[in-house]
Amino acid sequence: MPSHIDYFQAGRFRISLESNIPHLREQARLLYPDFQQPPYPFSDFHIQIKGHRSLGSLFRKEARFTFAERCFFTPLAYEHAFPLMEWGLNWCITNHLNHFVIIHGAVLAREDAALVLPGSPGSGKSTLCAALCFRPGWRLLSDELTLYAPDTKDIHSNPRPIALKNGSIDVIKKRHPQLDFTHPIEDTHKGTISYLKAPQHCFDLLDRPAKPSRLIFPKFDPNTQDCQLLPLPKGSAMIRLAEQTFNYGVLGLKAFEALNQFVRRCECYELTYDGDLDTASQQIEALMP
């Protein structure tokens, strides 16, 4: 397969992707609007994802991610090229950009009031985020990386495909069968993943930032009885937010001060939900300004 270079906007960032993997380009075309742009004079990240066979893989075909033509990770299975690109891009952003405080969390907004849902994998933030962003009045800024600019106190929009995992794939598919999903990608180290295209209006509102307003730490627990939304003291919220901040160590005091301000502007809660997305969404909406 010959290599192609495609230029596209992944959220806020201009990407040049060189690849010889047809299914990767197909999935990217489905999930990123305007996938094939004319060449950018300047791209934020030049990435390469190539199909490749090596002795180490016993000549089984693998997908190899390189950034600026340099390899930072072990290759993954050939079929996992798209998740590899998504993880690779997240790695590019969180490791190389420090003009934002970058929080591991989904972020949505109503008008300009942002709801931030930080959380470790498995907390159900992507599922909740997918449920909320198709309800009227909401827009998705990001399902994975909250980009907070400390100087302007803005959260910047960075819409990319929503990664749904395992059980949540069918839950969201049932609610919105008409949407663009990739076919389930199986046996990744996070289980089965299906990517969902973000709603079109989110891309149109790329340049409209939002202000921190509600901070909710979600926790998915199938054994819990109904949906609990409890206030969280700001001190605890601050510490938990710091733990979810990728470049906290690099930014040091600057990040501490930024998160401090961030938390002061937010009402903070902890949400435990049993998977009932309607109840959780309604409870969250009742909290929004």
Binding site: L55, G56, T74, L76, W87, W91, E144
Partner: peptide, 20 residues
């Protein structure tokens, strides 16, 4: 190092990919 280890280690996925 060149033959035995790559074969032994090939199923180890690097968590580092997984920025998130």
């Amino acid at each position: 190092k060149g033959v035995l280890n790559p074969i032994r280690n090939r199923d180890k996925t690097l968590e580092a990919v997984d920025g998130v």
